[in-house]
């Protein structure tokens, strides 16, 4: 597989909060601006790469603003950074870049992040890891997103439409229910519902929820299978990019293999550092030429892997 993005230099910078707003209960959009030194480094960020945000010094919100079920965990004194993929990056000028993140309030770090206000400084490490790459000869890309796997797909959709305009773009985005779609788009039970954030980039959108409360009912993998079956492209002309829960990625990988289509998946692991030091974010990867597997690091060797290489089965943790 051709690699169009090689590993670049990483670094640290201070971003200032442009905005940090709830787009729906538990889901926030955080915008940071990096100006001056560091902006050029972050402007090079590729879709699928991620950042580590320092949130340990943030205060815990007042009790009435802590979501149900998080009162206990919010009291934990945190020390580690939190990794996030980007949902969008705007290079504003040669000296300024805006980084957008979508986060779901799930744990001690994200509950503190809700207190970030305009102008607050946030220490950020990036760009980290290896992003998605576009193999040669592709005419169609299918972006398969599940739940909180959707934000980096928005970044990828924009990048593909700007840099690979000749590739037809289809987005298949799903979530458990309407409330779990991590975008501001209003829930809509119609079969042809779309997510507005993808609309400028995707020629075709299929939105699904497990319970049918937004878009079509059913799993993204069923719709991926249908799409591939009816595709007007040869398998070698199609590439799948996917991000979401590991169980979903495992199914996407199976569908891709069945149809003999290239597929890249963005994996998630608990990580202490994000820069290859702690060795905690191991992903089981098949070893070429043998039945064995080796551990690769999600932060350094990934988070994007060829789906054929990954041995799925990791357990999710809330941060």
């Amino acid at each position: 597989m051709a690699k169009s993005c090689t590993r670049r230099r990483r670094g640290s910078a201070t971003g200032l909060v442009v905005s940090n707003a709830a787009i729906r209960p538990r889901f926030y959009r955080l915008q940071l601006r990096i100006q001056g030194s560091g902006s050029a480094l972050f402007a090079q960020t590729q879709p699928g790469q991620f950042a580590e945000l320092q949130v340990s010094s943030l205060s815990v919100p007042p009790a009435d603003q802590i979501p149900d079920g998080l009162a206990d965990v919010a009291q934990r004194q945190i020390i580690l950074r939190r990794p996030f993929s980007y949902c969008d990056i705007e290079v504003e000028n040669a000296d300024s870049v805006r980084l957008d993140f979508l986060y779901c309030v799930l744990g001690a770090g994200t509950v503190r992040m809700t207190t970030l206000k305009e102008g607050d400084p946030v220490s950020i490490l990036g760009p980290l890891g290896n992003g998605f790459s576009v193999p040669e000869g592709k005419k169609a890309a299918v972006l398969v997103a599940g739940g909180m796997g959707a934000p980096p797909m928005q970044h990828l959709a924009r990048s593909l439409s700007e840099n690979h305009g000749d590739i037809a773009l289809t987005v298949i985005a799903g979530a458990r229910d309407a409330e779990s779609i991590p975008f501001a788009t209003e829930p809509d039970g119609k079969d042809d519902a779309i997510i507005e954030e993808f609309a400028p980039f995707a020629g075709e959108q299929i939105v699904t929820t497990d319970d049918g409360s937004f878009g079509r009912k059913g799993f993204v993998t069923v719709h991926l299978e249908n799409w591939l079956t009816g595709a007007k492209y040869r398998p070698s002309e199609i590439v799948i990019f996917s991000c979401g829960p590991e169980a979903m990625l495992a199914e996407v990988a199976k569908v891709a293999e069945k149809h003999n289509v290239d597929c890249q998946v963005s994996m998630e692991r608990m990580m202490a550092c994000g820069i290859g030091l702690c060795q905690s974010c191991a992903v089981d990867v098949k070893q070429a030429g043998s039945k064995g597997a080796v551990y690769k690091l999600c932060c350094k060797d990934g988070p994007v892997f060829d789906s054929k290489d990954v041995v799925f089965g990791g357990k999710r943790q809330n941060i």
């Binding site: 934990r76 020390i79 580690l80 692991r269 608990m270 202490a272 905690s280 551990y295 990791g314 943790q317």
Partner: peptide
């Protein structure tokens, strides 16, 4: 190869690995 994941978990003012 090392241990299976999860290999770390954060605790109050610390972490387990």
């Amino acid at each position: 190869k090392g241990n299976p994941t999860p290999r770390i978990v954060e605790t109050s003012s610390g972490m387990l690995n």
